[in-house]
Simulated assay, not measured.
Amino acid sequence: MLYFLLAVLFTVALYLIMRSYPKYQVNSFHAVVFNYYSCVLTGLVLTPDLKAFGEIQWNSQGTVLTLALGTLFVVAFMSIGMTAQKVSVTAASLAGNMSLVIPVLFGLFIFKNTNKEFTVLNYTGLVIALVALALGVMQTKAKSTAFAHDQPLEVSVLSYAWLLPVFTFLASGTNNTLINYLTMQYYRPEQTTLFMIIACSGAILIGTLLLLYKIFFGSEKLLLRSVVGGLILGVPNFLSLYFLLQALGSFGNSAAFVFPIYNILSMLVSSLAAWILYKEKLNNLNRLGLALAVVAIILISYQELGF
């Protein structure tokens, strides 16, 4: 249970750290790039046998695809940060956690690797998840201080800001789907940490190239606070996955049980923490969306939860 709670806490820390970037004038993209340097270092510290890296065939199809996945890592992480900053931590958490719909659908209809028969309740849960996402990002009015450093952007049906959590939903879901596919096709279960380090290395390559381009051709300045902000972010980023994997092991690798509970707790704790630290308030639509998100996850996995 300790691993479980640590996974949730480090996941929530991701959203809160990125939410704080505008206040300290941290460039989100710069921070995301250096976050992956910190991820790799954290992964190396936690890797029991570094000799495994000597066995990597860098020109193999699996390794090349994993490095390419790093590009999507950067895109997905940037979208999470922008959603947390411009909309709310709750919206970012909701979009990220509800994105489980995408790998579930791919596993069911494309990969055909689901280990259970989906029922009407399961499909109902998938539909409710999409409704929950829509309700979770809606706001009833706009603020004139929408772009202030310490204020989230209010999202109305008529604004375009709702595209941020939708993009986060799609990017995170695609990211998780590709992670599932690549680990299933090219890696053994005990090589998950190795897989993540290779993928983060790919994120470093693409992110650093883009960053250098922005600095030398876009007149952007790299500030120390952005570097430090990224290095700090990378530790909970990697540890959230590390402890989630540890939790899976302690619960007999029952992903269908662990992930729904993990998603529910992450959403609820994120909302509570954002309310306490950043005074983020939920309107009635947001509260309904959050409640429906819990219902959706339960319906999607009610067989594994023992209901």
Rank of each mutant, 00 (worst) to 15 (best):
N115E: 14
N115H: 12
V120I: 13
T124K: 00
G125D: 06
A134S: 11
L135S: 05
T140R: 12
K141N: 08
K141M: 07
A142Q: 13
S144N: 13
T145G: 01
F147C: 01
A148Y: 13
D150S: 12
L153M: 07
L153D: 04
V157S: 11
V157K: 07
L158M: 06
Y160A: 14
A161R: 11
A161S: 10
L163C: 03
F167A: 14
L170F: 14
T174M: 12
T174L: 15
N175V: 00
N175F: 11
T177A: 04
T177M: 11
I179C: 05
I179H: 10
N180T: 10
Y181S: 05
L182G: 04
T183G: 01
Q185L: 13
Q185P: 01
Q185D: 10
R188F: 00
P189H: 12
P189C: 05
T192H: 05
T192F: 09
T192G: 02
T193G: 06
T193P: 00
L194R: 04
F195Y: 15
M196P: 00
C200H: 07
C200E: 09
S201N: 02
A203M: 04
I204D: 07
G207T: 07
G207R: 01
T208W: 06
L211T: 01
K214H: 06
K214G: 00
I215Q: 05
F216N: 13
G218Y: 06
S219K: 15
L222A: 08
L222D: 03
L222I: 10
L223C: 00
L224E: 06
V227R: 06
V227Q: 10
V228G: 03
V228F: 07
G230H: 09
L231T: 05
I232W: 03
L233F: 09
G234K: 02
V235F: 02
V235Y: 03
L239T: 05
Y242P: 03
Y242K: 00
F243D: 09
L245W: 03
L245G: 09
Q246M: 08
A247N: 04
L248Y: 11
L248H: 08
S250E: 15
G252T: 06
N253K: 11
S254V: 10
S254Y: 02
V258E: 03
V258S: 02
V258D: 03
